[in-house]
Design a binder for these strands. Sequence first.
DNA 1: CAGGTCACCTACCAAGTGGTAGACAATCGA
DNA 2: TCGATTGTCTACCACTTGGTAGGTGACCTG
Lengths: 219, 219
Amino acid sequence: MTVAETRSRILDAALDLFGTRGIEAVSLDEIARSVGVRKQSLLYWFPSKGDLVDAVLDVVSDELIAVVGAAVRSAGDAPLDRIDSVIRAVFRPAVRRPALLGLVREVGRLEGPHVARLEVRLRPLVTACTAYLAAEMDRGRLRRADPGLVAALAYATVTGIATEPESLGAVGWNADVGGLRRLRDELRGFVRAALSPTSDVPMRPADDGAGARARRVGR
Amino acid sequence: MTVAETRSRILDAALDLFGTRGIEAVSLDEIARSVGVRKQSLLYWFPSKGDLVDAVLDVVSDELIAVVGAAVRSAGDAPLDRIDSVIRAVFRPAVRRPALLGLVREVGRLEGPHVARLEVRLRPLVTACTAYLAAEMDRGRLRRADPGLVAALAYATVTGIATEPESLGAVGWNADVGGLRRLRDELRGFVRAALSPTSDVPMRPADDGAGARARRVGR
DNA sequence: CAGGTCACCTACCAAGTGGTAGACAATCGA
DNA sequence: TCGATTGTCTACCACTTGGTAGGTGACCTG
């Protein structure tokens, strides 16, 4: 058992437990037990539960950034293909380790400092993403829309689908690997259809609500 | 303070706390405190925490069924309008009470009996929904796709967006009411574009993965 | 080989967990 | 009016929580 080994094993177990059951619901004893060590060894590496949470969040954001970056670099130039590649890339770790995106989903329950930390680390990814969407919309290669909202939408959809096989099971959907893959492909088609610039459904430009109201009245 | 009043106030507080912070993370003492009563009064109405959880889940499913039902009945005949109406209807309580959909999202963390209970109560809604989608696809008024997958997709997207203003905030999106409304409208446009039968993006029929692979190779 | 560091441990602690037992006042039908 | 029921309470209980204090052996370095 080398120096860093126990530490990384703790991080690993904590990520899975926090991500699947919720941070507040998982005790240090439980994490320690799953690693095969005493709670006090855990507190040796991470002086408090909050420190452990921060470390786990760092792992998560690093992984997310790496995965998305690799997907973007590996894809071709066409924006729909590139988005498609990112979706597939995010799904892969999400299926292998549902806890990963599950942890991002925990953000709403974290205290301020943790949230701020995660926000700072993920902000470059988000701004790059929205800037890219905006540029491609300007070039007419994506449907015109508010890039920030599209990014938020995509995030919510992907994490929603990838992290909720059980919830989906509760609404009558089988959550095996094949089913999840079919769902992913459906999502890819869905996104492709929704973002294609040639979609001939009447679309307003990204409006401030007034347009949406007018459309609702006028249809 | 009438007979049933305390009971319903407990349910109310439990729904909010469970939905926003997670079931396992909320203690009976905390719920009781927020109601302004002692924990033992709470255990008088609900003999155990599990019983309280079941009761809360019943409230949630009743509300969901009522909201969706009303939206469907109030909308016109065109499927895109009807879907639009359901999205707006689900967003309304989700914004007013994020805990509501947050609780549905907790399903993955519940123990078997709770899940089964919720599943049974929601199944009619789900089957009706997929049957409707299938029928409209047959009539050619919706893009051809697997109705079950579309339903799962829509569910994941709506709950994802409606329950994660904080997470979205962490990725740099402002979560005020106006922003959420703009996001909702964006989602409506997104769904409309994706489900419209006239979308001219090359679309396979709901395939088993082989089609998606072929398309990927052939682009 | 002495001293120190490192990784992990046992032994605690105060506060909080879900839950039981039973007292007490108000209110009800007979 | 009296006894039972109803709703809430105090007083506990065994157990778990995050965290402190401090000890122990292995190992490195001077």
